[in-house]
């Protein structure tokens, strides 16, 4: 396959799984927003509005993180139930194109949800070019590692129901327990080190800095970006090494 054909395959996969379902299954779009908005609502009400911006930052992270869990569920379903992955394996389409196409499709599908949080951000926080670039950069990296994680996990489950268990745990471990929806200072100091194990903590730090919720010294910012990028690269490498395209 030439590069042009690879790109065409990738875009067609993204269109097929991202754009077409918006037309044929529009109600599913609401499900993308359900969890992130629920947490935002809860955090805002419980804090008397104080944590609204934290909730918006958390909502952005969770929306993009959900791409990974959606990808995991979709790919498990397409692989185990529909045998669609086997159809594609027996074709010139290579595994990275398949994964990237589906990851892009999930991103496209989450755009309406992200748009809601971007509007909320624009209404409630100072909008600057640097903040905008930070949001785009952070969400792009979170999209990369959540997609890699989703694909890797999807290839290991024979039954799609098993993936629901893991996607719930992944969501819990990466978006609810880490300080994505609230400041890290809310976590008792003894347990704070646990938060630093999750790459989403660093994503949240960068977004919270972009929202003006905390000052981020250059050195801290570099560490946050570094950890986030390193975690993403690691997950992408693991996906490349461990994900199964041909069954053993």
């Amino acid at each position: 396959m030439s590069e042009r054909h690879r790109l065409r395959s990738l875009l067609r996969l993204a269109y097929m799984n991202g754009v077409v379902p918006m037309r044929t299954q529009p109600l599913y779009l609401l499900s993308v927003l359900a969890s992130p908005l629920s947490f935002l609502f809860f955090v805002t009400i419980a804090s008397g509005g104080v944590l609204l911006l934290y909730g918006i930052a958390g909502g952005m992270v969770l929306t993009v993180l959900s791409i990974g869990t959606s990808l995991q569920t979709d790919m498990s379903h397409y692989r185990s139930d529909l045998k669609f992955q086997d159809v594609i394996v027996a074709s010139p389409v290579e595994a990275p194109i398949y994964v990237a196409g589906f990851a892009l499709s999930e991103l496209i599908y989450s755009i309406p949800g992200l748009a809601v949080f971007i509007v909320l951000w624009a209404i409630n926080a100072p909008v600057t070019l640097m903040a905008g670039l930070t949001i785009v950069g952070v969400l792009f990296i979170v999209w990369g590692f959540s997609s890699a994680l989703g694909f890797t996990l999807a290839t290991y489950f024979a039954d799609v129901r098993e993936t629901f268990v893991f996607s719930s745990l992944v969501s819990l471990g990466l978006s609810v327990l880490p300080p994505v929806y609230y400041p890290i200072t809310s976590i008792p100091a003894t347990f704070r080190w646990l938060a630093y194990l999750s790459p989403t903590t660093y994503a949240a730090f960068l977004l919270q800095g972009a929202f003006g919720l905390k000052s981020v010294p250059l050195s801290d910012g570099l560490v946050d970006w570094g950890v986030l990028i390193a975690a993403s690269v690691a997950l992408l490498v693991i996906a490349g090494l461990k994900a199964r395209w041909r069954d053993p």
Binding site: M16, L82, D86, V87
Partner: peptide
């Protein structure tokens, strides 16, 4: 090989 083949797996269903 994959450039020359196509397959309908057993029990496969369309999207």
């Amino acid at each position: 090989v994959r450039t020359h083949i196509a397959a309908v797996p057993q029990e496969s269903r369309p999207l």
